[in-house]
């Protein structure tokens, strides 16, 4: 494995901030949501809603953006929202890191050689957040 050279060491240390030209920005000005408030989120909403593909309208100004969303129907891939908080999984990694395991079932999308379901099996029904 290529190792970073010594000159790379610590390269990501953030540069000292430039002297502010005005008061430090510690607060928001106007917090506005573009579409989130108009689309309910959550298990039910996501699994029942058609999938959306959103493009900002040409010439849109952030903060005053208009967004065009096109929908496409698809089967739900959402997880089941299991009420069980923990699974009985005992280990993230086997000692042999090349032996990936998955309880998920890959499926053919119907188009040429595309398989799905290869992500999500490990965290099925659980929050990935922290």
């Amino acid at each position: 494995m290529a190792k970073p050279s010594k000159k790379e060491f610590g390269k990501r240390r953030p540069a000292p901030a430039a002297p502010p030209s005005g008061p430090p920005v510690k607060r928001s000005g106007h917090v506005a949501l573009l579409v989130m408030g108009t689309i309910a989120v959550g298990t039910t909403a996501y699994t029942l809603m058609p999938r959306q593909h959103c493009e900002p309208s040409p010439g849109a100004v952030p903060g005053q953006t208009t967004t065009t969303c096109s929908s496409s129907s698809s089967s739900s891939g959402g997880s089941d929202g299991s009420s069980s908080r923990w699974s009985s999984r005992s280990s993230f990694f086997s000692s042999d890191s090349s032996s990936h395991s998955s309880s998920g079932t890959s499926s053919d999308s119907g188009s040429s050689s595309v398989s799905r379901g290869g992500f999500g099996s490990f965290g099925h029904g659980f929050s990935g957040g922290g």
Binding site: E55, G77, G123
Partner: peptide, 14 residues
């Protein structure tokens, strides 16, 4: 989207 980006959301299993 407010940054002017086009986006698409999908479940990790999808």
């Amino acid at each position: 989207r407010q940054a002017g980006l086009s986006t698409r959301m999908l479940d990790i299993e999808e």
